[in-house]
C-alpha cells in the first residue's frame, strides 16, 4: 500500500502550497484530477523523490520512503515527454534502467529484446529516440518502467498527444501492470485515460 500522509510542499518564494493525503493499494490505479497548476506533477515529483516535502510522510507497505533518494524508492515514472536519454539508443535507454552501468546479464538483455518485440518495436534497439515517433518513444519509456519491476508506477500525462492505436497499446500494457499488482498513480487531463485505467479518482 502506498500511503501519502499530510504531505505538504511549497515552492520557494510562494506563499501557499499543497497538502496531500491518500493511499493506493497494489494493483490499483488512482487518477489524480485537477486543472493545470493544481499540483499534480508536484505530487508525483514528491512521490518520486525529485522534490523534498516540507512535512508529512510517504509510506510503502508501512515503511517510510520519503527520506530515500529517488533511486532507492520502489518507484518508476513515465512523463509526457523527456523520458529518454536522447544521445543513447533505445536498447541502452532501457538497459540503463536495469543496470546503471549497462552490465546486463543474458536474462536482462533477452528481456529487453522480448519486450521490444512485444510492444511492436522489434529491430528498433539501435535507434536513437530522435528517430522515433512520439508513440514509439512512450512505448520505450513504458517498457523500461515495466522491466524495472518497481512496485509503484507514476504516470504524468503519459498518453497526451498520442494516436488511438498507440493509446490502445499503452492501455493494454498498463492494465497488465495493474493486474500484476503494481500501484499506479495517474495524472491526466484526459477523461478517457481515467475511464479506462482508473479505479478511483482523487481531486486536487
Amino acid at each position: 500500500m502506498l500511503e501519502i500522509r499530510q504531505l505538504s510542499f511549497c515552492y520557494p518564494g510562494q506563499s501557499s502550497g499543497w497538502t496531500f493525503g491518500f493511499s493506493v493499494a497494489p494493483g490499483e490505479c488512482l487518477a489524480i484530477q485537477g486543472p493545470s497548476g493544481s499540483g499534480k506533477s508536484t505530487l508525483l515529483g514528491l512521490i518520486a523523490g525529485f522534490l523534498a516535502p516540507d512535512r508529512g510522510e510517504i509510506l510503502w507497505q508501512g515503511q517510510a520512503i520519503h527520506n530515500l533518494s529517488p533511486w532507492q524508492r520502489p518507484v518508476t515514472s513515465v512523463f509526457q515527454d523527456h523520458n529518454l536519454f536522447e544521445h543513447l539508443d533505445v536498447f541502452t535507454n532501457i538497459g540503463l534502467g536495469l543496470h546503471p552501468g549497462m552490465k546486463l546479464n543474458p536474462e536482462q538483455a533477452s528481456a529487453i529484446n522480448q519486450g521490444l518485440t512485444r510492444v511492436g518495436l522489434e529491430g528498433f534497439g539501435q535507434r536513437r529516440p530522435g528517430e522515433l515517433s512520439g508513440g514509439q518513444r512512450q512505448r520505450v519509456a513504458l517498457l523500461r518502467s515495466i522491466l524495472r519491476r518497481q512496485l509503484v508506477l507514476l504516470l504524468d500525462e503519459p498518453l497526451t498527444g498520442l494516436d488511438t492505436q498507440t493509446r490502445s497499446t499503452l492501455y493494454r500494457m498498463l492494465t497488465e501492470e495493474k493486474a500484476r499488482g503494481v500501484a499506479l498513480v495517474l495524472a491526466s487531463h484526459d477523461e478517457e485515460d481515467r475511464r479506462v485505467l482508473a479505479d478511483r479518482h482523487w481531486n486536487l
Binding site: 497494489p26 533511486w71 534502467g97 536495469l98 543496470h99 546503471p100 552501468g101 552490465k103 536474462e107 536482462q108 528481456a111 519486450g115 512485444r118 515495466i146 522491466l147 524495472r148 519491476r149 518497481q150 512496485l151 497488465e176 501492470e177 500484476r180 499488482g181 503494481v182
Partner: peptide, 16 residues
Amino acid sequence: MPSPGKPMTETVSAAV
C-alpha cells in the same frame, strides 16, 4: 512480462 516484487534492476550503491 516480469512481475513486481522480484527486482530485475541492480543495486547502485557500488557506483564509484
